[in-house]
Design a protein around this nucleic acid. Structure first.
Ligand SMILES: [Mn+2]
Ligand SMILES: [Mn+2]
Ligand SMILES: [Zn+2]
Ligand SMILES: [Zn+2]
Lengths: 130, 130
DNA sequence: TCAATTCTTTAGAGTTGTTCTAATCTAATT
DNA sequence: AATTAGATTAGAACAACTCTAAAGAATTGA
């Protein structure tokens, strides 16, 4: 973790290390700022909400996290850096991955003049049956 | 317009009619609440921001509009009800359509137990070249 | 080793987008 | 025309997020 932060040009402070452990140890995950803050509090890690936001954004800029936009009004951060896509269940707010392998998006038109394609994102919105 | 609102179970009030004209006459468009409010003011239509929000949400629930989620922090509403997808240029906030015809999304995994697929959304994020 | 420097954290204030409240107004119904 | 149901509004409230400036911690380098 220490290395990972140093490599990203971030001082390995108490807070950043603790949050890195929550985020990166124990499998990929999706979190919002409030969720991570609540989790830190539960684990008795003293860290302010401002620092949660600072840290998530720094990790994103450093490429340690990416943002997933599925809901206006709330930012989700994703520790899974592999090419993949998302199920989003509107009713429950559940956000889950599915692998890009096996998925084919074909016939994407070329980017408008003066721009290029950064990323093709597929979001599968779910609802309750019937 | 009057018919359209009546069919949706909405009283055709002065405000709803004026907004329907802005939204639905003259081709498909994407708007945010603030944009529509500014436009109404420009056209000297007296309508409060609360009514803009109420109306956009009512139109969405009635199926006259859909919401496009491309940016956390701001809701976009789309008058284009045909199956289509979006380019989103992060840098400028430009949101443009491309037709679903010609696009194939294959290999979408089946929905998690207890849910079903509502819609498959493709968002092509654009950046400036290089 | 220990200033000195630079960067980080923090509480709380500020901002933005959106929703709520409750008073007033308007459309529909009788 | 009177009544009723529903709509609009200003402004307050709220939620998510960012900013500010003061205090604290990591790093540097003498
Ligand atoms: Mn939402
Ligand atoms: Mn954004
Ligand atoms: Zn993911
Ligand atoms: Zn569109």
């Amino acid at each position: 973790m220490l290395e990972r932060l140093r490599d990203a040009g971030l001082r390995p402070t108490r807070q950043r290390l603790a949050l890195a452990r929550l985020l990166f140890e124990g499998g990929n995950r999706h979190v919002t700022a409030e969720q991570l803050h609540a989790e830190a509090r539960r684990e008795e890690i003293a860290v302010s909400l401002a620092t949660i936001y600072n840290t998530l954004n720094q990790y994103r800029k450093a490429g340690l996290l990416r943002e997933v936009v599925v809901d206006s009004g709330r930012s989700w951060f994703d520790t899974n850096l592999e090419e993949h896509h998302h199920f989003f269940h509107e009713a429950t707010g559940a956000l889950t991955d599915f692998e890009a392998e096996g998925l084919a998006v074909e016939g994407v038109p070329k980017a408008p003049a003066g721009t290029e394609i950064d990323r093709v994102e597929v979001i599968v919105r779910l609802r309750d049956p019937q």
